[in-house]
Amino acid sequence: MIHEILTVGPLQCNCSILGDENSHEAIVVDPGDDIPRIMAVLATHGLTVKKIVITHAHIDHIAGAHRLKQLTGAPILYNQHDLPLVKMMDIQAGWLGIPTPTVSAPDDTLEDGKLIAVTGLSGSILHTPGHTEGSVCLHIPTQSLLLAGDTLFAGSVGRTDLPGGNTRKLLSSIHERLLTLPDDTTVIPGHGSRTTIGTERDSNPFLQN
């Protein structure tokens, strides 16, 4: 599997490009900004985007998705519970002092257990509400890989003080959906450095009893 991680936008969101070396089909996760850079990496590997996956509808994760869809024709997928956040995109832009981006409605929703697949590569959606009501993670078990969005970070967890946040739901999502994964699962959070499920279970101060 090809896996490129680009830090994009003013909040340095981790955008993942996942591609199959044989079919050259790709999934792009959280294209929050810097679409020319994303397109350049796709071109370097000869990849064709088949799906655009958004872990949650905060501006730093979704702002570039519409433009990427225009350029590639790939459908945009995110959980319908985050539609209220899309409707307040102008307010989100105001938080950062940036122009309001065009944000498309999802072409399909990301329900828990939904299979996300291109030729040669597949994963499943884990619905993990808490950071937002529609937050999801993408789990690719054959690669021992979890793209965690802003649900789980190295040594931390997602903030819950923004609209749609709920601390109880967040911690429940992490304990019930993420910490049940194998310890050696690599976690790519929405921001910052990678970690593993085992490391976070053992040492994340927000997850200790």
Rank of each mutant, 00 (worst) to 15 (best):
H127S: 13
S104E: 13
L126V: 05
L181T: 02
L146G: 04
E176T: 14
T7G: 00
N79W: 10
H175D: 02
D202M: 12
G155F: 03
Q80N: 11
H45L: 01
S203L: 04
N22P: 00
N166M: 11
G192D: 05
L47D: 03
D20M: 04
E200Q: 12
D107L: 10
G9Q: 03
E25V: 07
E111M: 10
L170W: 02
G165D: 10
G192C: 08
A93S: 15
V49A: 10
I35Y: 02
D202W: 06
N166K: 13
T55F: 05
L152A: 06
D184I: 01
D112Y: 00
V136Q: 04
K87P: 02
F206T: 01
H56N: 13
A93R: 06
I35M: 04
P101C: 11
H24D: 01
N166F: 04
T132L: 02
Q12I: 07
L121D: 08
P36L: 02
V86K: 13
L170P: 12
N22K: 14
N166D: 15
N22D: 07
S172M: 08
A63L: 08
K51L: 15
D161N: 15
D30L: 02
W95E: 08
S144K: 12
T55I: 05
T109L: 05
T128M: 01
T167V: 07
G165S: 11
V8Q: 04
H3C: 01
E21W: 08
L85C: 09
H24L: 10
L110N: 07
I188C: 13
G64R: 08
M39H: 09
L110Y: 02
T186L: 14
G32K: 01
E200C: 05
